[in-house]
Design a protein around this nucleic acid. Structure first.
Lengths: 142, 142
DNA sequence: ATATATGCAAACCCTTTGCAGACGA
DNA sequence: TCGTCTGCAAAGGGTTTGCATATAT
């Protein structure tokens, strides 16, 4: 089984891109996180390791991680983005609070099955499919 | 059954806000659309009716429509927003292409049932819940 | 009459891009 | 060495906001 680092390296080589120390650092910090990370949070942690890394490099690298399949980007309100790991992760879906943006991960085998059916019906590919259910979480109902 | 116009009016009165001609026009144009509309498209149509209406008013009014439950906002990539009607609509979910942002509406009674289960498990309310499945549409697979 | 709404333009704010110097391979 | 990468700062671009004027009630 390839490590994430090997995957990124091989992707970069295939595109004649370089496996720089900044890219290594950013990947490492990203992998240390659980769940969904926003760029702001990533950037703060990265700066603890190497304060010279600029935010533009973080954005550029995260886009590379998405391209090579190691990360998925989610669009939040106000144009913010969050990223989550895709590789070595068990497949799961998301329950998102429409009020506070809280994300709960869940799995449901039967829903999985019907997702497949629906995608097939409409000619969608299933690679990297995921599902999000929106509602209001218990905290926001108070 | 209340009309959308009555709902908006009553919401505005309850908040000591005013039912202005601009708000009427914007609601009307919004209701004439099917499916998912972006602000840009709405604005163009609104200007055909009343060119003096500014885009700031469109944004402000769409936010009011969301607040009073007549519209739902979806966040697209690059910070774009789209709006869809919520009232007088049969419940449906969305299949969204991760590449071209195309949205297909669908219904699946069993998925509906499991959505409910999941929401209950995690303490989410079911009011205005909806589900989105992401994948790549047939056009984007070519 | 008066508090809210509007249109305009500027401000916001996250993300992207251009550029000159730095650095992998 | 040479082409890619980086950090910086400026640009981008949809959305929001401030303000003086207009308007609904």
């Amino acid at each position: 089984m390839l490590t994430e680092s090997e995957i990124l390296k091989s992707f970069l080589q295939g595109s004649k891109l370089r496996f720089t120390t900044q890219r290594k650092t950013i990947l490492e910090v990203f992998l240390n996180n659980k769940g969904h990370v926003e760029v702001e949070g990533l950037f703060l942690e990265i700066q603890k390791i190497d304060p010279s890394i600029g935010i533009a490099t973080v954005y550029r690298t995260m886009n590379l991680l998405v391209e090579c399949g190691l990360a998925r980007e989610n669009v939040l309100s106000k144009g913010h983005k969050s990223f989550e790991k895709l590789y070595h992760q068990s497949h799961h879906d998301h329950l998102i609070c429409t009020q506070c943006n809280k994300i709960v991960e869940f799995e449901h085998p039967l829903i999985e099955k019907y997702q497949l059916e629906i995608c097939q019906t409409y000619g969608f590919t299933l690679s990297q499919h995921h599902m999000e259910i929106y509602g209001r979480c218990s905290d926001c109902q108070k």
